[in-house]
C-alpha cells in the first residue's frame, strides 16, 4: 500500500497541495481527476519524489518517511525503485534506440544481464504492439508509439506501482486509443496503477477508485460508481465542463 498523509506543498505563489491525504490501494486502479491546475501532476510527482514536499507523511509498504525532514538519497531511491512513471510528454531518451530506452534501467540501475534485459524488452515490445520498432530512434515514431515505448520502459523496471500523468493528452484521438488500450490491459491484470486523466470515459471504465483534486485539496476520494452516478454539485459542474454541448 502506498499512501500520503497531510501532504503539503506551497510553490510560494499560494498554489500547491494543502493537507492532502490519500491511500492508493495495491492491485487497484486509482484514477485522479480534477480541473486543470488543481494539483494532479503535483500530487503524482510527490509520490515519485520529483517534487520536494514541505510537510506530510509518506508510507509505502515498509517505508515510512516524515516529509518535513530532508530525505537521504537512499530513502528517495528506495521509494523510486518501487515506482514507475509515464509522463505526459513521453520523455524518451532521444539518443538511445527503442531497445536502448527499454533496457537502460534494467541494465544500468538493476544490473540485470544485458541478454536477459533484451529478452524482457522484446516481450514488452510485443505487448505494446511495437515488436518491429526495437532499432528505431524515438524521433522516428509517432506520439502514440513513443508513449507506448515509454510504458514499456517503465514496465521493464517491474515497478510495484505504475504512475501515469495524462499519458494521452498530447495525442490525437486515434493515437490516444492505442495507448489507452495498453493501460487498460495493465489495469485488467490487477497491477497497482495511479492514473491522472482528462478522459472521463476512460476513467469510468478502468477506475477501481477515484480521487478528485480541486485547488490543491481532495474533493472526493472513493468509489467510481458514486462519483459518476451521484455527483455532488461541484463534481457535476466539473464533469459537465468536460462535455461538449452544441
Amino acid at each position: 500500500m502506498l499512501s500520503v498523509d497531510h501532504l503539503t506543498k506551497d510553490f510560494g505563489n499560494g498554489r500547491g497541495l494543502h493537507d492532502v491525504s490519500v491511500q492508493f490501494p495495491a492491485e487497484q486502479t486509482t484514477v485522479i481527476v480534477g480541473p486543470s491546475g488543481s494539483g494532479k501532476t503535483t500530487l503524482l510527482r510527490h509520490l515519485d519524489f520529483l517534487e520536494t514536499a514541505d510537510a506530510g507523511r509518506y508510507r509505502f509498504d515498509d517505508l515510512d518517511y516524515d516529509l518535513s525532514q530532508p530525505l537521504t538519497k537512499q530513502e528517495v531511491l528506495a521509494a523510486r525503485q518501487k515506482l514507475g512513471i509515464v509522463f505526459q510528454s513521453y520523455n524518451l531518451f532521444p539518443h538511445l534506440t527503442v531497445l536502448g530506452n527499454i533496457i537502460e534501467g534494467p541494465v544500468h540501475v538493476r544490473h540485470m544481464a544485458k541478454a536477459e534485459a533484451v529478452t524482457q524488452a522484446t516481450t514488452l515490445l510485443a505487448q505494446v504492439g511495437l515488436a518491429d520498432k526495437a532499432s528505431a530512434y524515438p524521433d522516428e515514431l509517432s506520439g502514440g508509439q513513443q508513449q507506448r515505448i515509454a510504458i514499456a520502459r517503465m514496465m521493464a523496471m517491474q515497478p510495484e506501482y505504475m504512475l501515469f500523468d495524462e499519458p494521452t493528452s498530447a495525442l490525437d484521438p486515434e493515437l490516444e486509443v492505442e495507448v489507452l488500450r495498453v493501460i487498460q490491459q495493465l489495469a485488467t491484470a490487477h497491477n497497482s496503477l495511479i492514473i491522472v486523466t482528462h478522459n472521463m470515459a476512460f476513467a469510468e471504465s478502468v477506475a477501481d477508485h477515484i480521487v478528485f483534486v480541486e485547488d490543491g485539496t481532495i474533493g472526493y476520494d472513493g468509489d467510481p460508481h458514486t462519483f459518476f452516478a451521484q455527483p455532488t454539485d461541484r463534481i457535476r459542474r466539473f464533469l459537465a465542463a468536460g462535455t461538449f454541448t452544441a
Binding site: 510528454s89 534501467g105 544500468h108
Partner: peptide, 25 residues
C-alpha cells in the same frame, strides 16, 4: 529538465544520469 526526471524516475543517481543520459546528448 524532463530528461533528468525520466532518468531519476528509473532510479538513477545523479552521476549516472549525467553519464548515461545527459552527457551523451
Amino acid at each position: 529538465q524532463p530528461q533528468w526526471e525520466a532518468a531519476y524516475a528509473l532510479g538513477m543517481t545523479r552521476p549516472k544520469v549525467l553519464w548515461r543520459i545527459i552527457l551523451p546528448q
